[in-house]
Design a protein around this nucleic acid. Structure first.
Length: 428
RNA sequence: GGUGGGGUGGCUGAGUGGUCUAAAGCGCCGCUCUCGAAAAGCGGUGGGCCCGAAAGGGCCUCGUGAGUUCGAAUCUCACCCCCACCGCCA
C-alpha cells in the first residue's frame, strides 16, 4: 500500500513509477476521484456527528433524533465507497527505487555477474530427473499415486542432503561473526546482527494472508482449508511478515533479521504443462527464507546483505550461478527493487544446460509495513521490510545432482556439506 | 470437544447508561531546584482520519464487528484471542 499523501500531492510521480512497471496509470486518477468523494462524505458525516454529540450532551433528544436520522441515511453510502477506495489504493503497486533500471519484462533484466565455473563433462550431462530416478532419490511416480501430480518422495540421501543444507545455512546466518564479515566485505553500513531462526506456522488466518497482499493477486495460488478458515502458506514470508502486525519497534532494536524454515504449499494453478517433470515445480517444498524488518535509511544495505548471503551460500556449495538485477517491468507489486539468482543446470535443455531461478531477494520498502501497520517508535514512521530466499531446498538439490554428476551416474557431495553427512558420494 | 474466568493507554490497574474529555500508580519527556545527578515539586505525555498554510477545530478508537439508545468501556448478539480445569492426543 502506498502513502495516500504521496498520491494526493504528487500523482505524476506515482504515475511515472507505476508506468515503469507497465501498470495502467489510470488507477491513480481513479483513486483520486474515489478519495475525493470519500473525503467529502466523511467531512459531512463528521460535522453532523459533532452536532449530534452536542444535542446529546444538552439532552436535546428531539433534535438529536433528527440529526441521527440524517447521519444514518448519509452513512449508508460509506462502506461501499470506503471499500472501493481501499481496493483501488491497494491495487496501486509499490514504486521502483530510482536505482532500478527501467525495462519492459524479464528479457530486460540485467545480468550483474556470472560466478563460478560451469562444470565441463566428458560425457553427455544428464537431467536430474533421470539421475535421481536411477539413484532412487526422488519418486514422483508413487507420489502421484498417493497425492497426485507435482508431488515427490525424497528418499535415501536426498532428505539427508536437505538437513545438511539447513545446517550449513543456519550455521552461517545465526553467526554474528559471519554476518559481520559479509557486511564488512560489502562495505555496508548496518550492524552485525545474527539472524533469529524461526519455524513459523504454515497455516495462517485470512487476515494475515490478506495483510500480506497475497489475496487479490495470486489468490489462485493459495491452498485453503475451508472448514477451518485457514490458508496454507506458499512461503514463510506470509507467516513471518504478519508476526509483528500492528506492533511498534524501538528504533534501536532494529534491524530484526529472521531466518524461517517451513514447508511451502502452492497450487501452481496457472502453470499447466510447465515444468511437469520432476520436482522443479511442485505443490509442496521446503524452504529457508530470510525476512528483515529495518529502519528506512538502511533497507538498501539490508537488501545487499541478503544478496551477499545468498551468493556466499552458493559459493560455499560451489554451484555456478548468475545474479540478475530485476528491471522495473519484472518487479512484483510489493517490490521496489529485486535481485534474482539463477543456478546453472547443465542437464537441462537436452544436456546443453540452462539457468533456472533459485533465489529472489526483494526490498518492499514501506509498502508491506504500511498495510501491516508496523512502525518505529518514537518516530512514528513505517519500517521497511525485505525478504529473500536462503535455500529453496528442492531446487538446490536439483542443482547439486546435475552439477556434481559423474560419468558413472553417481553424484558427489559438495565439500561444504560433507561435514554434516557420513557419505561423500551418492551411488546405488 | 466440554465447563468457567477474562481482554481498558508504553506497562500495572480502577471503572456496570450521561462532568469517562478514562481514576491512580509506574514509565517516558520538559521545567524548577542542583556544580552535576538523585530525590522532590510543577507541567506534559497513545493512535487513525477529515478540514486548515499554520495556529487550531472536528470525528473515530476501551479485543474485532454488528445492534439497542438522544447518549455505550458499561446493555444485547456474533466472532477472535488469552487463562484455568476436564476429555482426547505426538
Amino acid at each position: 500500500m502506498l502513502d495516500v499523501e504521496l498520491i494526493r500531492k504528487d500523482p505524476e510521480k506515482v504515475k511515472d513509477g507505476i508506468a515503469k512497471k507497465n501498470v495502467d496509470t489510470s488507477v491513480v486518477d481513479e483513486f483520486l476521484s474515489l478519495d475525493k468523494s470519500w473525503r467529502e462524505l466523511v467531512k459531512s458525516t463528521d460535522e453532523k456527528r459533532a452536532l449530534l454529540n452536542k444535542f446529546s450532551k444538552e439532552r436535546n433528544i428531539e433534535e438529536a433524533k433528527k440529526v441521527k436520522e440524517q447521519i444514518k441515511s448519509e452513512e449508508a453510502r460509506l462502506p461501499e465507497l470506503e471499500a472501493q477506495r481501499l481496493k483501488t489504493l491497494r491495487s496501486i503497486p509499490n514504486l521502483p527505487l530510482p536505482e532500478v533500471a527501467v525495462g519492459k519484462d524479464a528479457r530486460e533484466n540485467k545480468t550483474l555477474r556470472e560466478v563460478g565455473e560451469k562444470p565441463k563433462f566428458d560425457f553427455p550431462a544428464q537431467d536430474y530427473v533421470e539421475l535421481s530416478e536411477k539413484l532412487d532419490l526422488i519418486d514422483t511416480a508413487r507420489a502421484a499415486k498417493v497425492s497426485g501430480s507435482r508431488f515427490g518422495y525424497l528418499k535415501h540421501e536426498a532428505p539427508l542432503l536437505e538437513f545438511a543444507l539447513i545446517q550449513l545455512a543456519l550455521n552461517l546466518l545465526t553467526s554474528e561473526k559471519e554476518i559481520g564479515k559479509l557486511i564488512k566485505a560489502n562495505k555496508l553500513n548496518i550492524p552485525a546482527k545474527a539472524f533469529i531462526p524461526v519455524i513459523p506456522p504454515v497455516l495462517i488466518k485470512p487476515e494475515a494472508m490478506q495483510a500480506m497482499g497475497y489475496m487479490e493477486r495470486g489468490g489462485d495460488e493459495i491452498y485453503q482449508i475451508e472448514k477451518d478458515q485457514l490458508y496454507l502458506v506458499g512461503t514463510s514470508e506470509q507467516s513471518m511478515g504478519p508476526m509483528h502486525m500492528n506492533e511498534n519497534f524501538q528504533k534501536d532494536s532494529l534491524p530484526h533479521r529472521h531466518i524461517g524454515f517451513s514447508t511451502c504449499f502452492r497450487r501452481e494453478a496457472g502453470s499447466y504443462g510447465k515444468d511437469t517433470k520432476g520436482i522443479l515445480r511442485v505443490h509442496q517444498f521446503d524452504k529457508l527464507e530470510m525476512f528483515v524488518t529495518c529502519a528506512p535509511e538502511t533497507s538498501q544495505d539490508e537488501h545487499k546483505l541478503l544478496l551477499a548471503i545468498e551468493e556466499k551460500l552458493m559459493q560455499m556449495l560451489e554451484l555456478p550461478y548468475r545474479v540478475l538485477d530485476i528491471c522495473s517491468g519484472d518487479l512484483g507489486d510489493p517490490a521496489a527493487a529485486k535481485y534474482d539468482i539463477e543456478v546453472w543446470l547443465p542437464g537441462q535443455n537436452e544436456g546443453s544446460g540452462q539457468y533456472r531461478e533459485t533465489h529472489s531477494a526483494s526490498n518492499t520498502t514501506d509498502y508491506q509495513a504500511r498495510r501491516l501497520n508496523v512502525k518505529i517508535r518514537p518516530d512514528n514512521i513505517y519500517v521497511h521490510m525485505l525478504n529473500g530466499t536462503c535455500f529453496a531446498i528442492g531446487r538446490i538439490l536439483i542443482a547439486i545432482i546435475e552439477n556434481y554428476q559423474m560419468k558413472d551416474g553417481t553424484v558427489k557431495v559438495p565439500k561444504a556439506l560433507q561435514q554434516y553427512l557420513n557419505f561423500k558420494e551418492i551411488k546405488r
